[in-house]
Nucleic acid binder design. Structure first.
Ligand code: ZN
Ligand code: ZN
Ligand code: ZN
Ligand code: ZN
Lengths: 166, 166
DNA sequence: TCTCAGTCGTTATAATATAACTAAAGGCGA
DNA sequence: TCGCCTTTAGTTATATTATAACGACTGAGA
């Protein structure tokens, strides 16, 4: 409807997040996919968080900006962002985290990003790593039994360096 | 109800499953944990299946034997079986599979079983492996960044040897 | 016998995710 | 510009997975 003075609430994101969103927009443009306003908001809300966020947490926040957002609104955005590799799903938490790699990657969109996640049970933080030893060990183990791997989930729960001090 | 001996439904399990259940019973006795009838039925239903089974699938089957089984009935049994290491949860499927290792293990109950799962997207079969390369690679990667791992999930999705033929 | 921990029955509800249908918006050739 | 088609989004309802809460029963040991 209205466009000139459109949003009641200002764009909620920090400068860091805004910079990442700009890169995400450029990334999508290059892939001819569309980072629409809803998708951008959802990505921003995910990137802004220091921890993985659940779909319904996203929904709660999104509603500050889009009053009639509903579960499908969020899940569609999540599906898009997953398909573009801009976020990851943490299976053990049914929650989502921004990809620490996608916006840094200079190898093109088919670069075969394999991530592993370290989940701190102390503080809830999740860090993403790309460890080639793990990647190779998995590929080898699969090959050994004639299994052709397509995609893998590696989630390591434990205590981060900071939380071991307490 | 004209059948001769009006018996309740017979124990539904195959000889193989029954043998495993016997070992599970002995295992629990040794640990002074109790494999009650409900827990035994749930374990049997899981072991019997060639694929991971969801909690509500278990519930549907369980109701043939315990008419008033409810979700907590199943989830309590699952929690027990997980705590004893008799089953595993496949995170990507929200489903459960019998442990291929626990009843074979002669190292005692604290033997530190680390499993990885290969999930075939063709036939739905899941196989459990214990690959020390993967286990070590994960431990090393965690140590590298000062993270103290406690437990890890490794789920590899792809095509099993059989499904690559089709 | 009493008590306590563990287990189970029961009802209700929370948390996560998708189906199905309609409408609007955007891209694109005629 | 127009019409056409594809993608995206709104909306309502529902499916799927999991847990809270409370009372009753059981069996082992003081
Ligand atoms: Zn990533
Ligand atoms: Zn921590
Ligand atoms: Zn196992
Ligand atoms: Zn297969």
């Amino acid at each position: 409807m209205l466009t000139s003075t459109a949003t009641a609430v200002q764009d909620p994101f920090s400068p860091d997040t805004l910079a990442l969103l700009d890169r995400a927009a450029a990334f999508c443009t290059a892939r001819t996919s569309r980072l629409t306003e809803t998708r951008r908001l959802v990505l921003g809300l995910i990137l802004q968080s220091s921890k993985p966020v659940g779909a319904y947490d996203i929904l709660d926040h999104l509603r500050q900006y889009q009053r009639n957002a509903a579960p499908p609104t969020v899940y569609r955005a999540i599906d898009f962002l997953l398909s573009q590799g801009l976020i990851h799903r943490i299976e053990r938490m049914s929650a989502f985290i921004g990809c620490a790699h996608r916006l840094e990657c200079h190898h093109g969109h088919g670069c075969g990003h394999r991530a592993q996640f370290l989940i701190c049970s102390g503080c809830g933080a999740v860090s993403e790593v790309e460890d080639s030893e793990i990647t190779h060990a998995i590929a080898d183990a699969a090959r050994k039994i004639g299994f052709k791997p397509h995609q893998s989930t590696v989630e390591i729960e434990g205590l981060c360096a900071a939380c071991q001090q307490g």
